[in-house]
């Protein structure tokens, strides 16, 4: 799973790069607009070490933001699964709030909290949180009637058992959702850094943009992609291990 993710990313990155170079040579564009392969290689040698540190900095924020989002989505999803007015209220609120673009309120967070770690974390968590919440509420609200029937009939159903049954029956779906949310957390952190922060790979991309240095941006994209592929592969592996241990 991990290797497949890396292969897939390398393939897509190579195709994208080949497309860019094709456009460059077909349209006769200068190295200033789209750098050649040699310039890319040189830039890679110069900035890879620094960008690796930046990407890890961003990933650290994204991971913490994702963990916060997953925990929050689980708590709210479990509360929102009920058919009471409170459950309905949570569901309606989640659907409505997620429709609002979180990036649009990012400047407010930066104005209030500054351009440090906390702002990046909050924006990453918020971007990651709502899709997670919708998925968790969807899974937790859906009864597994053929299993739950017995426990309801005999008065054995407790909320813990209900959550356990629904989580177990949808473990693959949950793993996919959590793994997919890693991309959102990373994207959220990069967006936050791109808007106003003073650290991370998003900040480095912003500087490269001001310098109109596409080679640096392409190296940064490579670093982001490879790191995210490894992280998602590890999450999927962890999901498989949880399922194996649970069903042992």
């Amino acid at each position: 799973m991990l290797l497949r993710r890396i292969y897939q990313f390398l393939l897509i990155y190579a195709l994208g790069l080949a497309g860019l170079l094709a456009v460059k040579y077909l349209a006769g564009l200068s190295d200033y607009v789209i750098p050649g392969f040699g310039a890319l290689w040189r830039t890679g040698g110069e900035v890879t070490g620094r960008y690796a540190g930046d990407v890890l900095d961003t990933l650290g924020v994204a991971v913490v933001g994702q963990v916060v989002s997953v925990l929050l989505a689980l708590v709210i999803g479990i509360l929102g699964r009920q058919t009471t007015w409170f459950g309905s209220f949570i569901k309606v609120a989640a659907y409505n709030v997620q429709a609002y673009p979180i990036v649009a309120i990012a400047p407010i967070i930066f104005i209030l909290l500054g351009d440090g770690f906390l702002s990046r974390l909050i924006i990453a968590a918020m971007i990651c949180y709502f899709p997670l919440l919708l998925a968790v509420v969807g899974i937790m609200s859906e009864p597994v009637t053929d299993i739950e029937h017995f426990y309801r009939q005999t008065g054995r159903m407790r909320w813990q058992l209900e959550v356990k049954i629904r989580a177990f029956e949808n473990l693959s779906k949950l793993t996919t959702v959590v793994s997919g949310s890693a991309t959102l957390a990373m994207a959220g952190t990069i967006v936050a850094e791109f808007i106003a922060a003073g650290a991370g790979i998003g900040y480095s991309i912003r500087i490269a943009l001001y310098q109109s240095d596409l080679a640096k941006i392409l190296v940064a994209l490579f670093m982001i992609g490879i790191t995210l592929s490894v992280y998602q592969g590890m999450l999927e592996r962890a999901g498989q291990m949880v399922k194996q241990v649970w069903a042992r």
């Binding site: 053929d146 017995f150 049954i165 177990f168 029956e169 649970w246």
Partner: peptide, 21 residues
């Protein structure tokens, strides 16, 4: 009421399920 399309959760053996209920 019991019907033929019910399932037991697969997280433990049927012996363990029976013990618990």
């Amino acid at each position: 009421y019991t019907h033929n399309q019910e399932r037991l959760p697969d997280w433990s053996s049927i012996g363990r399920h029976l013990e618990r209920i």
